[in-house]
Design a binder for these strands. Sequence first.
DNA 1: GAGTTTGAAACT
DNA 2: CAGTTTCAAACTC
Length: 499
Amino acid sequence: MNELEDQEYSYKRDLSEGSLVPSHHTHESSRMANLISHGMHPVPVYSRMEESLREDDYTTYRILPQLTCDPLPPVAHFSLASYPEYLLAQSSHYQHALGQPYSSWPSQEAFHYGMSSGEICRAVTSISSDGADVYSLEGYSTDQGFRHQDGNQPHALLVPPHDQKLPVEMSNICQMLQPVQVVCDVTGGGQVVVLNHCSPDQIPHSLMMDLNTVSLPKPSEQSCSTEDHSPTGKASDARHSEKTASTGLPQTHKTSAGVTFNLAPGPYASQLHQALCPTQTVELEEEGQTKGRRRVKWEKSKRPCNCTKSQCLKLYCECFANGDVCNNCKCLNCYNNTEHNLERSQAIKACLDRNPGAFRPKIGSRKQGNVKGCHTKGCNCKRSGCLKNYCECYEAKIMCTSTCKCVGCRNYEESPSKKSSERDRPDYSIYYQTRSPLACITPDVVEATCGCLLAQAEEAEKEGYTSAHAERMILEEFGQCLTQIVRSIFKSTSVQFNE
DNA sequence: GAGTTTGAAACT
DNA sequence: CAGTTTCAAACTC
């Protein structure tokens, strides 16, 4: 077996979270490959997380300054303000920002970073799924010479910070990336990045830092087109649209240093979405064949809401829940726009008071061997069997977990073929009043288990063992895998497992 | 498109 | 924290 195959079948067992992790096919490796493809070269270093994971042969990575994003020299760390902070700042500072559109930037100038938001997002999100990694992105500079090879305009807006902050865990970036709006405070001599990775047509949206002195470019649309009750909503909207439409070119903002950045939808929009939300993109393609239904949550931010009573200032409104302002919605009496900043910021605050995590993405990191993630709160379905889109887990195409409090759950199999035959099979809900523990056995777990077995076979072959010996090794390996799977199941169901 | 069902969010 | 109400999306016809 050649080296490549060796790698493919060299697996590590770690079922502490119900999953088997192939050592060369981990998410980490794919993320790093993604980073490397963007000119960032990782070097394994010890970090806080690595200390805790070292026993399982995990490796965390840090992008070191000397191994930088080509062709740019190293500069900054990423750090972040919290999403709730961002939401409030966005709301409370819009008024000021909008009052002085396109004016100069404070002290240090904004600059064209030269890397598209898509590239940044891909790089960042490629390492952002499980919230357990400690990363630091470096290698960003004020160098303006770099342009994307296809000649497209970059769409990231970087602004130098006024103070120094310690880099924060990239897991926070994950939390920021999953909502539709993203704000990264690139510090350590770095910048603020304003992105909207799932709604790239709304780049940039706002800034976190020093909003009293920073004058923002006017964000892309803020009010509902059909039911905007504000007297100025449509007019300002029209003016804004005109700026783009009149030229047919993307809006840009030029700083006093002569540096420009884009304000309008970028050519990266579709590819950005494709790269960042591959699953969701597939979903959308599918839904195109189903009369526009079956949308995923974060894509909904781009879909018009239909709120009639909530003024779009409660979490019932998905635009609001996604941290977005309503845009081309069909809502009535909408206050979720920049014309009602006061009400909006009060509503945001009220939501945060009730639940500090109200604006965090509901679909969190992967658990139970489910690479797609899990619902952070779990669902509470009672009548849908968690097999309709009423169920947030089902809608997000993830299985229910032990976190869920659903009754009669049938959302515990991933196999599409099995799902298609759901109607034909007996109702097991009478046996599984809650989620099936077997939900832990995902295709990934199965695949990883097979990998372990193949690795054993390989080793036996390499060592020249007899077939009987090889068979025994494989069986023992299978036993170990099975033990860990069972332990994982018991762990997930909070039942003591005695070996 | 109207009416019903559903479950999350909000409220008590 | 549990029960109830409100709400908007999903679904059905």
